[in-house]
Design a protein around this nucleic acid. Sequence first.
DNA 1: AAGCCTTTGAAGCAA
DNA 2: TTGCTTCAAAGGCTT
Length: 381
Amino acid sequence: MPQLNGGGGDDLGANDEMIPFKDEEDHEKIRESAFTESDLADLKSSLVNESEISQNSNSAVIRRGQQEDQRIYTDKREHLDDVPRHQDGGMYKAPYSGYPFLMLPEPYLPNGPVSPSSNKVSVVQQGMHPLTPLLPYDHFNPSPPHIPTDVSQKPGVHRHQSQEISGFYSLPQGQITPSMNWPNQPVYPLPSCGFRQSFSSSLQSSSSFPRFSHSLMLQSGMHPTGIPHPAIVPPSGKQEHDQFDRSIYTSSRANYLLFGPVRSGIAFKSHAELKREKEPKKPVIKKPLNAFMLYMKEMRAKVIAECTLKESAAINQILGRRWHALTREEQAKYYELARKERQLHMQLYPSWSARDNYGKKKRRKRDKQQDSGTDNSLDCS
DNA sequence: AAGCCTTTGAAGCAA
DNA sequence: TTGCTTCAAAGGCTT
């Protein structure tokens, strides 16, 4: 299995990267009872009950149990390592286009070169998982014979560049595809039926910039390297708006200077406000996706098509069941992918912390639970 | 318009 | 170390 690199090499939380498999028996039971595409109708009708069950059971207890199981499973990881990996030998076709898996030229990476041969930029095809187009799934083998997988990235430990990453994500030298338009392209696989608009081509013109003229690309949604990145999002959707407003303000101020306060028709903002406006808003760097999130991204469209469902909550319940029904090997693909995601994320944003995004939501779930009193579990009769 | 729902996993933090 | 909290995605729904 994605080896999860046991052996003390995996610093990216490999120990908790595998789901708890209580034992084979349970797993088989899960698989037997797992959602099948043929019983879609049953699923829809039972969905509520399932959610009720899952909600009524103490989630904290469940989590705790899972964590314990994870510990148990950690011990089993040696087993997993014996499991044939990616038997299909095919490509991992995750459509997720999370990180571009760029090979950043030295000047672009805070920590220096990714690899000795890193003077190139690799980009993934749009609409595909960054690892997909370039990497046969065999590349996910965490222990390529020639590449050490040990990346020490514990908190507080210097995150050195992973040669593994460079080995994984390199492209033919100098290759840049015109598809590096992360911010605008949907991260999702677009099903053939297309419930979304096609990829934006706004940055297709990026092919016109010979290499990253990064000084011109330092805008929201772009990594400081000048490379757009899906993990970077504007602090709010209003950013363009704000800039627009500012331009209006600028011209209005000119009017004020020319025509005075009456004809200019604006009330000037306080010095503090002006200062605040001048400070560039920090783009939000999102958390890297975990294995389940990657799985959801890949499978959501499929579930939507199969179940004719649209509500994410319901879809996620299905995906949660399917996730548990996956074999170790199947899950391992996503754990490994998630590990790569975290590695790359750490390389791109060495100083980023998940804590940075805390408090983004205005109303915490906890607050709501306090408000509602005690039990907010579903009452489906 | 903003938050909720729903899932699992990773990370952060307090005890 | 343990246990809890928050966030990551997503889109319909609720407030």
